[in-house]
Design a protein around this nucleic acid. Sequence first.
DNA 1: TGCATTTGCGTGTGCGTTAACGCATCTTTG
DNA 2: CAAAGATGCGTTAACGCACACGCAAATGCA
Lengths: 344, 344
Amino acid sequence: MTSIKDIAAKAKVSIGTVDRVLHDRGRVSDETRNRVQRIVRELGYRPNIHARNLSLKKVYRFAVIMPRLSQDSEYWKFPANGIDKACRELEMYKVSATYFLFDRYSNASFGRAFREALGSNPDGLLIAPVLSRIAEELIPTIPQGLPYVFFDSSIPGTDCLTFIGQDPFQSGLLASSLLQSITGGEGNVAVIKVMPDDFHLRERIRGFLTGVEGGKTMTAKLFEVDSHGGEPAFADVVGRIVKELVPLKGIFVSNAWTHSVARSMQALSAANGVTVIGYDLVPKNLHYLEQGLIGFLISQCPSTQGYEGIYSLYEHVVLREKVKQTIMVPIDILTKNNVKYYRG
Amino acid sequence: MTSIKDIAAKAKVSIGTVDRVLHDRGRVSDETRNRVQRIVRELGYRPNIHARNLSLKKVYRFAVIMPRLSQDSEYWKFPANGIDKACRELEMYKVSATYFLFDRYSNASFGRAFREALGSNPDGLLIAPVLSRIAEELIPTIPQGLPYVFFDSSIPGTDCLTFIGQDPFQSGLLASSLLQSITGGEGNVAVIKVMPDDFHLRERIRGFLTGVEGGKTMTAKLFEVDSHGGEPAFADVVGRIVKELVPLKGIFVSNAWTHSVARSMQALSAANGVTVIGYDLVPKNLHYLEQGLIGFLISQCPSTQGYEGIYSLYEHVVLREKVKQTIMVPIDILTKNNVKYYRG
DNA sequence: TGCATTTGCGTGTGCGTTAACGCATCTTTG
DNA sequence: CAAAGATGCGTTAACGCACACGCAAATGCA
């Protein structure tokens, strides 16, 4: 471990000069600066984090901009758990996170959260840009030099520090592959597109349909349902599915509303022989998975996403290390037999 | 954050006295000791980890006792990766690990590794007690107060700090459930028990058979194969399976030798319509999974096991915190469609 | 030339903990 | 009863870094 002292000795200057070079606070001649910088590189100097934290008074505050925790069947609680866990681990490094939550269906609400977050003068942003239209508009207003990390979904063309998420196309492909294994590659399956949709959700469906096309003789039919309609809307679409597709082998649901489909299937006594595949280990889905009314859930490691998001900011802002540009989380397959070992 | 200074002030003693009380190195009157201890409790004092590390010269060395990395189809490289990752993260806390590898099939070799590990005077042990007989014998010789963590498998009746592993029974149950979904709950499946076996492996098979019994009309037949016989032994048993069980719907392999089964199935051109389920993301299994000759692999998050093992020791020895008694890792289901997002 | 400002650098202090050291008091021992 | 040891406690120097301060020398400006 080379310390600032070793550098100073080798460069024949004082530690004060080395400090000025490292922190770029001027008052150093070009010649000295270059010499010190060369030696820093040569010795692979990395500041001792303990010494730094001992002397540093600065606290690091990260702003988290994401949907309200209760929305999407309480899905957002999971990323929040990961964020909280990371903050607990990094507490001694003076890292903290503040939430700015928005209504997942309101651009105005996103805008408010976004502005409030920036107004709090944070050291970094962790954003779930589920409302891509408004996010795309506001991202450029982030001050130069303020790092921001996307999780869940991304906004192309921005220079975010890191993106953490799942490959939605591949997850759809996986779902279709599972369903084909079970049906023997034959029969009717329904694809439920839950509206309002977003890029992520469309990619899942595209992946699923691509898988079906590449398979044998399984046929898939797309159904749309507006989630604002709540349970009745799902009951309605499931009713249509059961009537139209005979014999029905499986249903693919494009997001966490899977439980509403399972519930409707149960209500119609139509669940027998039909495999329901959907997304996310939210409490209601867990219930139907355990009952056997949902066959598989695909999980996108939401708490990991939150956790890694904070860590990415920490490594960049506090440790000043290079961080990964993208972190793809695993596509976890959950059944009633392994679900108890996943915590989201 | 209350510091040792605050305690000293409140107790009207010097920080030296507080330090002596905290570290229990005598030379303090009972009255003073009690007063200080009370204040420590009242103020909820926790040492500042940065200050501690800055002043501490002690390095923590953990000894890792596990099979040679090349064994079990290179399975053990994965836990080693997790261990290395943890060590990299904890490098600044002066934590390091030393490997003491043994031959997975030799009690004498385990004994040697064990004695060498103890001889190196470590601050903690991380052990994969795959040779349960000899391990059971040697564990009691661990000096009092030296913490040890088991991963992969456990030795009941010992007071290890933590056990990290997977529920093997449940993983077998999961495998049978997957196979029943695919076969529609009917037809013949083969169960391959790879010898020499151990508790873990037997539990997986017990789980699988329990699942089959609870199902519909699927019938399972058990086959044993000695892994010392290598590829020919597997070719032989697969030949028998294909001949005996007609029509064959699936094969469950109890450990990482799954690739040899897939290979033999391919050689016999008997892979069509047969779903092979086995364990562990070792390189050869990955290959056959991608080819579609292995349908599912069950992974036990081996790198996580190594990672968590080191962390458990770290938290106990360095931070002196309470740690979890058992950590059950998820039962990951891998297919060719999601495998690329798992790194073991 | 004289004075003010800037530039280049070294010094010193604080952060909280550890642990070696040392100074008084007592207590035991020959 | 003096010497030797034990007891109870305070003092202080690291540990590596951040940052304020201050002192010369160099430079600018009149």
